[in-house]
Design a protein around this nucleic acid. Sequence first.
DNA 1: CCTATTTTTTCGATATTATCGAAACTATTT
DNA 2: AAATAGTTTCGATAATATCGAAAAAATAGG
Lengths: 253, 253
Amino acid sequence: MAIQSIQRALDIICLFSKSRPTCRLTDIANRLGLKISTVHGIVSTLEQNGFLQYDSHLRQYSIGSKIFELGAHFSTNLQVNLHARDYVQTLAERTGCSNRIGIWDKNSVLITLFAFPEGVTTSVHNIGPRITPYCTAIGRAMLAFMEEDDCMAYLEQEKIVRHTKYTLTTIDAILDDLEEIRKRGYAINRGELTWGRAGLAAPIWGPGEKIEASLAVIGATERILGENINNLATELVETVSMISDSLGYNPGQ
Amino acid sequence: MAIQSIQRALDIICLFSKSRPTCRLTDIANRLGLKISTVHGIVSTLEQNGFLQYDSHLRQYSIGSKIFELGAHFSTNLQVNLHARDYVQTLAERTGCSNRIGIWDKNSVLITLFAFPEGVTTSVHNIGPRITPYCTAIGRAMLAFMEEDDCMAYLEQEKIVRHTKYTLTTIDAILDDLEEIRKRGYAINRGELTWGRAGLAAPIWGPGEKIEASLAVIGATERILGENINNLATELVETVSMISDSLGYNPGQ
DNA sequence: CCTATTTTTTCGATATTATCGAAACTATTT
DNA sequence: AAATAGTTTCGATAATATCGAAAAAATAGG
């Protein structure tokens, strides 16, 4: 159904990632099992349009500025980003912790907004990466409240990996935790993905009782899970409530 | 030379912008002069791959999350962003003014980094847009120091428009200003693009005496051009010098 | 500095495949 | 409910993407 040449072009673009920022022509052809001359035609078209950029000295391609420019539109237009901006700033200020917003996208959590606690900050960093849902607070906060079928569909296709001794490694253990999240109102990550890094997260609701996103307060384990945890949780839950209101959430409906 | 179907796919993606965040199938076909069934095949392929997203209720397409994710790699991998980050934070702190970094790209300035002065701030906003070079400090700071041929090639293709009474509207006036910038070491925008908004900017150099980017301090006219202008300019010039050093600029070569 | 090797670019023939029109289907408006 | 506007499917056809081969360019080796 997909148009072959376009599919190949998109496959090529998707080869690039944080861990593989550049590719050479031959690499691309080998990785995708295509003829070099075929790849050459495709990458030339992509380069002419600014979707890839070519370093003719190093003879390697990387993501082009056009994709950056277009990608910025995505987050700029994202409703939850627009509504959450001020609230997450305040939250970072009051808690002294970084926090971030992610949306559920293709069985992963895509980070779309990041707020830092201290003083001056720069835009651009810390957004864009995809987070694994089952072993993070930001992910489980959404899993706990989404349609059960969608949740199971996700869990059944996910490759569950033990990252630390705290990682929940069975679907049953995760489902039990989701039940606790529903009772508690927010999710807790006790260092399941990265040793020493913890988080609290709660879902952001939109109109039609639809989960729009998830907001997480993150930081060193002792900072998040220490004596301050109840304060953090209260601030978090109040913040997601205000953002949800702003988005038009109307639980009475 | 370009592959037709891919070219069309890219043209479709490029239809989306901040001012036109969504498009319907028929719109796309009309705008690009293509048959609806042709467009349908292309947008379906793009949607399947997350390059576009489709709201089946509103029946309209918008930029997909995949482009956002890939675009983030561009700015993450950008050398000047990596090196400048800490310096622009300090600059914002010391001056109390917002500042931003842009790179020269396709006859425009693409904003890749933004630093805010006050308190807590969020990432993501303010990056991505393209700025018109001739009527901004961030643009003229690069024009003044780039290869003269490139500068003239840009100026001759640019459609020069009067935005305010301060806008320089002839190539000669712009060239005179560029000469002043070279003497002075930094560019000044006295409200040429937007009434009441001013900026100071200076170029960032990389290895091989190549202009990597431009750094601008921006704000309300009275804040930038008032009695504090010399302090701002000094801070700015010191900052670009440190960033250039960090990038490996070696003017002695 | 020249040769060998690897990588990239060009080009034309061929068959694959993108395109188009038409028709079926769906949604919206009056 | 009917009419209009917009979307999706499908198969025939001709346009065009693909491929192999050869030329060109760049790097590595001697």
